[in-house]
């Protein structure tokens, strides 16, 4: 077995070790992406509101 294979194999515990790591990083990444997306949405909405106000004047 190559060293990469044996590393991925995790001594037979691959089905427990890798999901734990993958899950952790999915949750960590989502917690960065979601607030950034919401901030973008907030500013887009604000710009829209500003445009509407300028038109009304």
């Amino acid at each position: 077995m190559s060293s990469l294979q044996s590393f991925l194999h995790m001594g037979g515990y691959a089905i427990y070790v890798w999901p734990a790591y993958v899950l952790t990083f999915i949750v960590l990444i989502l917690n960065v992406i979601l607030p950034l997306k919401r901030e973008g949405q907030f500013f887009r909405a604000l710009v829209e509101r500003k445009k509407r106000l300028e038109k009304a004047q």
């Binding site: 590393f7 995790m10 001594g11 037979g12 515990y13 427990y16 070790v17 734990a20 790591y21 952790t24």
Partner: peptide, 24 residues
């Protein structure tokens, strides 16, 4: 945690979950 730490004398490689479990 994944490359340099040796496997545990009892739990083998499965103990590597410690590196995400305990800090969390």
């Amino acid at each position: 945690g994944l490359f340099f730490a040796p496997p545990d004398y009892q739990q083998g490689e499965s103990f590597r979950i410690i590196y995400v479990h305990v800090p969390s």
